[in-house]
Design a protein around this nucleic acid. Structure first.
Lengths: 366, 366
DNA sequence: CTATAATATGAGAACGTTCGCACATTTTCT
DNA sequence: AGAAAATGTGCGAACGTTCTCATATTATAG
């Protein structure tokens, strides 16, 4: 009922108890210099007896390394980030690192605060899903200060940092091609498409036309739109902006509304492509409520494979991103940087898989 | 191409630049003692000019507080923990705390390592989903050392720590009662039921019979079994151990196998209760593959509401646990403790909601 | 107008480690 | 054998803060 913080056994006490200097005790316990076996045993036993536990703050203060990686995720509640984080956690843990987690909710101000906090806590590096792909002075500063940065899911223009992404454009193109191959000519797209500094959808279309766009530093949903355009063009089909459902904000509500708009058009699309998990769930809501039969009334392909897609009937075809692997790769890159790897930044594009399921059929004859 | 770690602007430099002592600069920048407005301005401006950022390690070393909470989740990849974590993150962030995350995979050795690492990193407190409900000397030690511990999802016997749980027994009882009310007499249960020190299912049944069981320190799946038994008893129905699907290990594979066993019994259950998200997904797999119609061939209620349950047809009735709220509550309790609240440990039992959906019907006449 | 309290500042010691250096002792190389 | 290298140990100074204490100065009260 009395003693609270009498715990703290320091290296000094261990040293005293073992009859050596703190330096020697430090060497044994920290495992960094020379020391005789006999001394090692003595110190270790003393530490054991006193219940010594190192104070990693003190160590970090002096070594300048905390063995902690800061992670800025968009929203840890989404299966997307949760899986990536799992990958990061597994790899870092194996290397004895901890992870300090924050959510940005994809908002640059939140990201800024997060990065600031993490850096003040002296993390050894930053793994981050960035919210601003063109400026990000806070990340430029981090890189300049020698704090390794690894980007996930999207890359920042002119930032000398590693990035682990997926070739969204190719994967999306592949999906749409499957649909055109099946005979579809009116293919709807539902995507977030929130931020693009270049303007609106038609601006984007002309920018694509001009070929003046670096798809690797676009937000994923724009890359996926890019692939959609690619596929339609190679199939010789026109691009109807009315079939492009731009949700504009990352919310289930808005996605439902946009899907509903698409599916209630006079000339209903015969196939739908949803550009991420949230959109897919929202689309399913609408499809179910409109009583549309998949794939008879509507073929469907989704970006991101959610658990239910494999066991509802029919199964829903999906692009499955290697999420845990992305996290692992990002963490491995980070560990290499922390250990001093100074080679030039890597852009890693992992290959997604395609889960073919029963949601694709030829369009009904009209 | 040359300068790497020239960044570090310390309080000493700021002090020099502002023409005051480090103590004064510290007071201004740390916001803790007295200082004149004029001095404040001068120091702040100096800090601004030099781009000063406090080193939270140094601060933590001396104050003994890191403004960091350690979290030990089972598996952050599961929506269950992801949601809880989100709640924790929101509340702690608002209070300026960071969270250091680890996964235990529900294994006590992993938990032990995690707790050790977190404590060495000097976290101000530990929020943990414990893997061992009867001993846990490492947590007893934490509490003894004055490191606040808040348990989530389940409580530990004789540990003086706060806990945030859900009344699993009551929620489960409620579900089963809905099924018996609908006329079901053969109700199957699929649950993890991995660890219980008392023995096997029949031992558990007799222990329940004797009323010698504290349900609040059982693992959730056992509490849910308890509720299942409660409900059948009050309905005057016998308990058939053959209807209790004990998966025994937390794996989708095993859950599928066990569900299959139940659904291929000679006298197939007319209703099924799955005791958590993983079990539910596995059960759906099997139900779909056996081509059973819900609710005609089988009524279904699931513990934990997954997104697909609301948009597949028919919808699946589910117990929805207030996960984010649990995380928030745990974090709030933690913050109170960190700020010195020494009142006696609280056991918080949040109320789950029930999402009634079309997966419940009367059993087919035999 | 003095006594007391509140405000304001600085010097220097913490906090618990590791690091640089000096100096012994042992091993290894010509 | 002697020189050089590797190994082993301790002292005391870092690391970048906050804290304690001493000492002013100013405001408030009696």
């Amino acid at each position: 009922m009395n003693d609270k913080r009498q715990d703290k056994v320091t290296i000094t006490e261990v040293a005293k108890h073992a009859g050596v200097s703190t330096a020697t005790a430090g060497r044994v316990l920290g495992g960094y210099g020379y020391s005789r076996q006999e001394i090692k045993d003595r110190v270790k036993q003393a530490a054991e007896e006193l219940g010594y536990r190192p104070n990693l703050l003190a160590r970090g203060l002096i070594t300048g390394k905390t063995k902690t990686i800061g992670v800025v995720a968009g929203d840890i509640q989404s299966p997307f980030y949760a899986s990536i984080l799992r990958g990061i956690a597994d790899v870092t843990r194996a290397a004895g690192f901890g992870i300090l987690l924050t959510n940005s909710d994809e908002q640059i101000e939140r990201e800024l605060e997060a990065v600031q906090l993490l850096r003040e806590k002296q993390v050894d590096g930053l793994i981050i899903a960035p919210s601003d792909l063109s400026g990000s002075p806070h990340l430029q500063a981090a890189v300049r200060d020698g704090c390794p940065v690894v980007l996930i899911d999207r890359a920042i223009k002119n930032l000398a940092a590693d990035a682990v992404c997926v070739d969204n454009r190719a994967a999306s193109r592949d999906c749409i091609t499957r649909l055109t191959d099946a005979g579809h000519r009116r293919i709807g797209l539902v995507a977030e498409l929130e931020r693009w500094e270049g303007g609106d959808i038609t601006d984007f279309l002309t920018a694509v036309e001009d070929g003046a766009l670096d798809s690797s530093t676009l937000f994923p949903s724009w890359q996926r739109l890019y692939g959609y355009i690619d596929a339609l063009r190679s199939a010789g089909l026109p691009i109807d902006p009315g079939l492009i459902g731009r949700v504009g904000v990352y919310s289930s509500e808005a996605a439902r509304k946009e899907t509903q708009r698409l599916l209630e058009r006079p000339e209903r699309p015969t196939a739908l492509f949803t550009a991420d998990g949230l959109m897919s769930a929202a689309a399913m809501h609408v499809i179910t409520s409109l009583d549309l039969q998949i794939p008879r009334d509507l073929s469907l392909i989704c970006f991101d494979d959610l658990d239910w897609m494999s066991f509802i009937k029919p199964g829903i075809a999906a692009v499955v991103q290697p999420l845990t692997e992305m996290g692992e790769a990002a963490a491995r890159l980070m560990l290499a940087r922390v250990e001093g790897d100074g080679s030039k930044p890597q852009y890693l594009a992992l290959q997604p898989k395609f889960a073919a399921r029963g949601s694709i059929a030829a369009p009904l004859a009209l």
